[in-house]
Amino acid sequence: MSLVEDIQVETWRTRLGDFWREFAESKVALVALVVIVAIVFIAVFAPWISPQNPYDLARLDLFDSRLPPGTVGSGGYVHILGTDAAGRDLLSAIFYGLRISLLIGLMAGAFALVLGMSIGLVAAYKGGRVEAIIMRIVDLQLSMPAILLALVLTAMLGQGLWQLVTALVVAQYAYFARTIHGAASAERDKDYIEAAIATPLPAHIILLRHLLPNSLPPLIVVATVQVASAIALEATLSFLGLGLPLTEPSLGALIANGFQYLLSGRFWISVYPGVALVITIVSINLVGDQVRHVLNPRRGQ
């Protein structure tokens, strides 16, 4: 039977190519993607490309404090973005701060994804009372501002990387849970799930091999947006003094450090870390928006 030759041959590679072509239709998103790649590069290689290690207290010189951008300090090199109150080179501090902010954002995003995904998936698959209880808890949490929840948690847990990540995960998993629950509830009613039940295949195989992969696409979008909002949350907490210890400042802490000098004309200490933060968050969101646009099933065809 000559059925084979009529098949339109399409592979994962061409699909990925299609995705990329549609993504690149937006020049803004393309620029944002380049910026993100650059930021990630900076964050990863900060120790090698920074003029100074801002965490090494022994290297800091108080005589260098609050130098305006472009001044040559005691280290003998130009502080392109100036220095902060502790005499840190601001460019180096921003590079290291990006490293911390990105690390926390990604970790919080990843853990929140896993937690939210498991909860939402189980709720959608089980249905009935289990689903009702889980999703009401999630809804309840979504009705509270994430920042409030994170504030209370960091106040309770204390300072430190893991405490911060825990607070962010608890504040954010609900978004993932609701998103995957919506997608999985739609998939659950499709015949291929019923076919798997009728075969019969055990629940964990249906969940992991069928329901999960088909419910993932909307989560990709939420994940990018949530990483950005985790970074913003972390900056807010650090700004309020609830984040990491001041010896290892993240972007939020840097902004807070310079805040008191804003009105005395030493704007750079707060503004440049702020600009770095805004560029990071806006770029991630722009890329996320374009991914959502491309993945939207209602466009095309």
Binding site: D191, Y192, A198, P200, N214
Partner: peptide, 28 residues
């Protein structure tokens, strides 16, 4: 459930897992 009864659904566009290769669908 028994494995001795198998079902074929109406709509072949929804009864096959779109993200699974045919070989896995049939052999799973």
């Amino acid at each position: 459930l028994t494995t001795r009864v198998q079902m074929v659904h109406q709509d072949p566009f929804s009864s096959l897992d779109p993200r699974m290769r045919v070989a896995n669908t049939v052999s799973e």
